[in-house]
Design a protein around this nucleic acid. Structure first.
Lengths: 227, 227
DNA sequence: GCAAAAGTGTTCAGATTACACCCATGG
DNA sequence: CCATGGGTGTAATCTGAACACTTTTGC
């Protein structure tokens, strides 16, 4: 139907973020195909014929981690003609948030992939370093107003772990008293009667995030800020 | 280099927004090519061989409006396999902010294009209605923290015009006293000694936006909210 | 002088900040 | 019994919303 103008390959690359022991980490892979085979790379794939970019990203996430139902959002599309020395390929980058514990518990994950702390990342191929920076910037924006912390933390977490996530993401300390008051002022953090004692003698209570309560609040047009 | 997987056409479509007489408007065009020739459509083009999406969007904006140096930002990439009945085409949507007065003053604009008020838009082809909705949502988000109002208003404007922009974008009224206090609390709105008398007998002072001052403020990590 | 838009001041409630303080417990 | 991290209370300050008010000018 259309005149024969440029046709290109479409890729999707995923910036996969998780938090472990208070440190933000990124899942990358030793690139399995040329060019630049065996160099560190984001995990990606080419778009299939009957597939949206979102579906392709979910497909590659499943093959990399064995997990479904992952938080996934389109980030930006990278189109520089020389970005991939293997040919003209544009890449629709997505970012994904993962509970690393779930990842470790899952057997069907891909070999050759590895979690790196953000401040210890190897050089990535192509423009993947840019993608990571853009993803982190977007994550910082989004985390101020959206409950994405709970996509990374495990189901039950302490308030200190929650605070650690924000401190790690924004690279700054927050006052504990004020932080607790703020997040507890909303009702969607539900205190359980379980205590965990791995960081103190007193032990600290576990909380869980109640999505229903959050969404009800949100629908009432409340301004909900996390930080 | 890569195996022969799917190659597709890449398009870019522009959501071109302006404000005129207190009303937000969108620039659309009677589609010049089949399929759906002569139906209302966003203005777009196919990506050239040695071109980024950003460059292609600027190219199509120039041909549509005769203007360069337009505020342009990537919005989202639309990839549904059936989105274009003419073939598999993915579209990298951008949104652009225009001073409509500049547009009218310019002779080299494309014929067949037309400004519609947002609440009077005709049905657009393909998924272009979705694109418009997504663009407006993003604009609303962005306008809270970024000085994009000044990309739409002319160089000199009254505070009432500025307020009108926000009232139009968010479809709600703001208290004039509080609005003025807020925007004037930052120093980047510079009062001139010119008055304009087309809406009142008293007349109202014109202000201009000083980008340098804004950027200096911003670099000092101030939290700058517009609304 | 008066209507009408431009522009200012005052008040009060709620949020934010800084910081001092209490609590529980394993060693 | 005390060091340590968990958890709470409070006063000072800042911000935002509401609304009453003054100013200027053409008719």
């Amino acid at each position: 139907m259309y005149p024969q103008v440029l046709k290109t390959l479409i890729a999707t690359d995923c910036i996969i973020v998780g938090i472990e022991e208070g440190t933000l980490k990124l899942l990358v892979i030793k690139r399995p195909i040329p060019p630049l085979k065996d160099r560190w790379s984001l995990i990606g794939t080419f778009l299939g014929i009957e597939e949206t970019a979102h579906q392709a990203a979910h497909r590659v996430l499943y093959s990399a981690t064995g997990l479904n139902n992952i938080y996934l959002d389109q980030l930006h599309t990278y189109t520089r003609p020389d970005r991939d020395p293997g040919g003209r390929v544009i890449s629709i980058a997505h970012f994904a948030l993962i509970r690393i514990a779930d990842y470790h518990n899952n057997s069907s994950k891909q070999v050759g992939s590895k979690w790196f702390a953000l401040n210890d990342l190897p050089k990535l191929i192509f423009d993947h370093d840019n993608m990571v920076n853009d993803a982190l910037a977007k994550l910082r924006e989004r985390a101020k107003f959206n409950p994405i912390a709970f996509e990374l933390l495990s189901e039950y977490f302490t308030l200190k772990q929650l605070q650690n996530f924000y401190e790690e993401l924004y690279q700054q300390k927050f006052d504990t008293a004020n932080f607790r008051k703020k997040v507890l002022s909303y009702s969607f953090l539900v205190k359980t009667n379980k205590k965990v004692k791995d960081t103190s003698k007193k032990g600290s209570f576990l909380y869980r995030y109640d999505r229903k309560i959050y969404e009800e609040l949100r629908s009432k047009e409340f301004k909900i800020r996390f930080i």
